[in-house]
Computed example of a mutant assay.
Amino acid sequence: MKIINPSVMLEDEIDGQAILKKLERIGRTCYKSEGNIKEDSAEKFVKNIMNRNHMSVIEHESISVRIICDRGVTHEIVRHRIASYSQESTRYCNYSNDKFGNELTFIKPCFFDEGSEGYEIWKKSMQNIENEYMKLIEVDATPQEARSILPNSIKTELVMTMNLREWRHFFLLRCDKAAHPQMRQVANLILNLFKANIPIIFDDIEPYGTKVWEIVNKSYYFHEYAEQQGLANSAKEMKERIYDGNTNIDDLIKYVFYGQNQEIADSCVLTKPCSDLTDDDFDKAMTVFLNAVCEFK
């Protein structure tokens, strides 16, 4: 029996600047402004169309990703309909064969600490399943018959292809606090790959679990909170600075949380994951954030 962590890899060699230039050429068709294309105009153009929610333009680019995870996660992934999938088949893969190491491979659950009572119960269950799977193969069960006892934790490999707009939809759902922990773990891995390779398109999406994720995202979408606290002007200023296309959100976050504002830099909320924030912690951080963002230059 083998236990591994989930992993992801890009199937495409991505040139982020080339993608932006392609999207600019396509998007300018709508305005017949091809004459305005310059060597450095693509990034600004794509940012502007996204600010206007003109997302149909980014549908013209698709990316394929290879994912190694458990079958419980892929059951959720394949619910995304505007996509293409190719997946390792337990009907045809005989895991007693040499090419599979004559063993089953399972994905380590992220919610059990190794050595904990829960982890040991899970590990023992996986070992029992491997033993029984091999026994079924020995008594001439076919792989598609023996697979009936395989659990959600069994390792599988999936290649999925989606356009950039659908990838955004995927991340907004699957990187969220409400997502299943293992689904979110995989989605965060993919998002980090995309953010490292493709400028602009995914800059406004942050994986849940980062120290500032919950505060920043809630402050984007819940401006009524600021109004209730008498901070309407701060919320308006923040929104304008984030979406005017001239402020880099990464610079904004670094400034507010780690830079010149010592009140937040010293705040206890930065020393714990967002899932551990109390209501008082969140109220304090939100108030200071909305005020501090107005100081950003």
Rank of each mutant, 00 (worst) to 15 (best):
M1C: 03
K2G: 00
K2N: 07
N5Y: 05
P6N: 02
P6R: 00
V8D: 02
M9N: 07
L10M: 11
E11D: 10
D12A: 03
I14A: 09
Q17W: 06
I19Y: 11
G27I: 12
R28T: 06
R28Q: 12
T29V: 15
G35W: 09
G35N: 14
G35H: 09
N36A: 14
N48V: 13
N53S: 14
H54L: 12
S56A: 13
S56G: 12
I58F: 14
I58S: 13
E59S: 09
E59P: 03
E59K: 04
H60M: 08
E61K: 11
I63E: 02
I63K: 07
S64I: 02
V65W: 07
R66K: 13
I67Y: 00
D70G: 13
V73E: 08
H75T: 12
E76L: 07
E76I: 06
H80K: 01
A83H: 03
S86A: 13
Q87P: 06
Q87T: 09
S89Q: 04
R91K: 15
C93V: 15
N94T: 08
Y95L: 10
E103F: 03
E103R: 10
L104E: 04
F106T: 06
I107T: 00
P109Y: 10
D113N: 06
G118V: 02
Y119I: 03
Y119Q: 01
S125N: 13
M126I: 04
N128W: 05
I129K: 07
N131D: 15
E138W: 11
T142K: 15
P143T: 07
Q144S: 14
A146Y: 06
R147G: 04
S148A: 11
L150T: 11
P151T: 10
I154R: 05
K155H: 05
T161W: 02
M162F: 02
E166W: 03
W167H: 07
R174C: 01
K177L: 09
A178F: 04
A178M: 12
A178V: 14
V186M: 03
L191V: 01
L191C: 05
N192G: 05
N192W: 01
A196R: 12
N197F: 05
I198K: 00
P199F: 04
P199D: 05
F202L: 06
D203N: 10
D203M: 01
D203T: 00
P207Q: 07
K211V: 09
W213N: 06
I215P: 00
N217Y: 05
Y221E: 01
Y221M: 06
F222Y: 14
A226Q: 13
E227D: 13
L231N: 09
S234P: 05
K239D: 03
K239Y: 09
R241L: 07
R241M: 05
R241A: 09
I242A: 02
Y243G: 05
G245V: 08
N248R: 01
I249R: 03
L252H: 00
I253C: 01
Y255M: 00
V256W: 04
F257A: 01
F257D: 01
Q262T: 15
Q262E: 15
D266H: 12
P273Q: 02
D279S: 09
D281G: 11
D281Q: 12
D281Y: 00
F282L: 09
F282W: 07
D283T: 04
F289A: 07
F289T: 10
L290Y: 15
L290D: 10
N291D: 14
A292I: 08
E295V: 06
